[in-house]
Design a protein around this nucleic acid. Structure first.
Lengths: 240, 240
DNA sequence: TAAAATTAGTTTGTTGACAATTTCTATCAA
DNA sequence: TTGATAGAAATTGTCAACAAACTAATTTTA
C-alpha cells in the first residue's frame, strides 16, 4: 500500500540537507561539544557521504551561527559565552517585540483562539508535570513560534525560527537550565495573547519585550551562579 | 617593491570568497537582473572557476537572501516585490531601533564626536551636490552602520551590515529612487545623535524607529506610483 | 486536435583525486 | 631550557568526471 502519493517534485531530501539537519541536532543536543574542532573528513566518514555535500551542510550551519569558520584553518562548534547569550536575548527582544506588534494587527480570530487553547494546555501541564521541563520548553518555543508566524513577515519568521530559536534551544541544553519560572511565564503569555486579542499592537510589543528581557535577567543570574561555581571548581583543580 | 608585508595567515582570499563578492555586487547593481535564472555552469565559466567553489559562493548568497533556491531546479536572483521591501523595512525598524538604544548606552564620547562630524560633512554635501545622490546614499548607510557598530552586539551588526544593508542597497538600485528627503533625513539623523549624546536610550530608539518607518512611507508611495506607471505601460503594450 | 506519455537534453547533486595551505613535530642554535 | 626553523603530516581548497533529477520537445493515443 503506497502511503505516499507520487511526487512531481522530489520530496526526497538531498544528502546535504539530511546531514545538515543531523549535525544541527547533534550540535544543539551537545553531542558535538562547544568549541570542538570539526574536521571534514571525519564527519564525512561518520555520515557516509563525500566532502562535497558535507561542506555545503557546514556552510549552512555557519550561516545560522552554529559553526564558526576560519579560512584554511577549519571550523569549530560555536561556544555560547554569557556575552553571546546576552546578544541573542537582545536581538530576540527586538525581533519578537516587532513580531508581537504585527501579530496584534494581523492574527486571525481563529489563530487567537488556537493560541488561547494552547495556553490552557500548558496550564494543565504545569500542574501535572513534576519536572518534565522538556515539554514546557518546547511548549514555550511553540508559543513564540506561533506569534512569529502570525506576523505574516516571511523574513522575520525565518530569522526567528531557523536561526534564533535554534540558538535558544542550544542555550537551554547548555545551561541545563530550568525555565525556573513556568507559572510566571505562563501569566505573561496570557497577557500577551489578550493584548493581541484586543488588537493593541503597542501593548503586545511592550509586553513581549518585557517578557523576554525578564527571561534574560533570570538566565543572567543562572549564568553568574554557574560561573562562580565554575571558578570554585577551577580553584579546586588548580590546587590539586 | 613589495608593497604588501609577508603574511603569516593567508590574506589571499579564497576563490569562493572573491566570486561571492563579485556576484553580490553584480546582483545589487542589477547586472544580474531580478528573477533571472542562475545556471552554475554558465557562471563558473564566466568567472573561470569550477563549480565547487562557485556553489559555495551561491550558498552564501542564498543565506543573505540575494538568491532563492529550489532543490534540483536551480537558483534565481531574488525579486524585490513591494511586499518584500516592506518586510525589509519592518525588520530594519526593529533591529536598528534596538541598535540605537544600545548605542546610546555604549557609544564612546569619541565615537559620538566622529558621528557629529560625519553629519556636518553630509550637511555640506547636500548643499553642494546637485543630484549626486550616490554619495548621499552611501553616506546614509555609513551613518546607520556606525550606530550598528556602536551597539557592540556582534550579531546585530552582522545582521545589519551583511544582510539588511545589502538588500537595502539593492532596493535603492531597483527603484532608482532618490531618498527624496535628504534634508529631512539629515535633521532626523542629527536628532538621533543628540539623543545618543545625552545617553537617552529610550529616545534614541524611538527616533530611529520613527526615522525608518518614515523612510518606508516615502518608499511606499514611490513604489505605488511606479506600480501605476507600470500598469499604464502594460496597458499600452497590451493595446499594441 | 488535444492531452498524455515517452524520450532526449540540460542542469543539479555527488564523488574521489589533486593542489595549496596550515599545523604539528623534530631538530638545531643561542 | 628556550626559541626559532625546516620538514612532515594533516586538513582545507579546487577540479573534472559521473550519477540523478528535472525540463522541454517529440511522439503516440484518444
Amino acid at each position: 500500500m503506497p502511503t505516499q502519493p507520487i511526487a512531481t517534485l522530489s520530496e526526497r531530501q538531498t544528502l546535504s540537507e539530511q546531514v545538515y539537519n543531523d549535525i544541527k541536532e547533534a550540535i544543539i543536543a551537545g553531542e558535538l561539544i562547544q568549541g570542538a574542532k570539526i574536521t571534514e573528513d571525519e564527519l564525512a566518514k561518520k555520515y557516509g557521504i563525500s566532502r562535497g555535500p558535507l561542506r555545503e551542510a557546514l556552510r549552512r550551519l555557519e550561516s545560522i551561527r552554529l559553526l564558526i569558520k576560519i579560512p584554511h584553518a577549519g571550523m569549530r562548534v560555536v561556544t555560547l559565552t554569557p556575552e553571546m547569550i546576552e546578544e541573542i536575548y537582545i536581538v530576540r527582544e527586538a525581533l519578537e517585540g516587532m513580531s508581537a506588534r504585527l501579530a496584534a494587527e494581523r492574527m486571525t480570530d481563529e489563530e487567537i483562539e488556537d493560541l488561547r487553547n494552547l495556553l490552557v494546555r500548558h496550564s494543565s501541564n504545569i500542574d501535572k508535570s513534576d519536572g518534565k521541563q522538556y515539554f514546557q520548553r518546547e511548549g514555550d518555543l511553540d508559543f513564540h513560534f506561533r506569534i512569529a508566524q502570525a506576523s505574516n513577515n516571511q523574513w522575520l519568521m525565518d530569522l526567528l525560527s531557523s536561526e534564533l530559536y535554534q540558538l535558544l534551544r542550544m542555550c537551554r541544553h547548555r545551561t541545563s537550565q530550568a525555565p525556573a519560572r513556568p507559572t510566571k511565564a505562563l501569566t505573561e503569555h496570557k497577557q500577551i495573547v489578550e493584548a493581541i486579542a484586543s488588537r493593541d499592537a503597542e501593548l503586545a510589543e511592550m509586553l513581549m519585550r518585557r517578557h523576554i528581557s525578564g527571561a534574560w535577567k533570570t538566565v543572567e543570574i543562572l549564568l553568574k551562579e554557574e560561573l562562580s561555581e565554575g571558578a570554585l571548581q577551577n580553584d579546586t583543580v588548580t590546587k590539586q
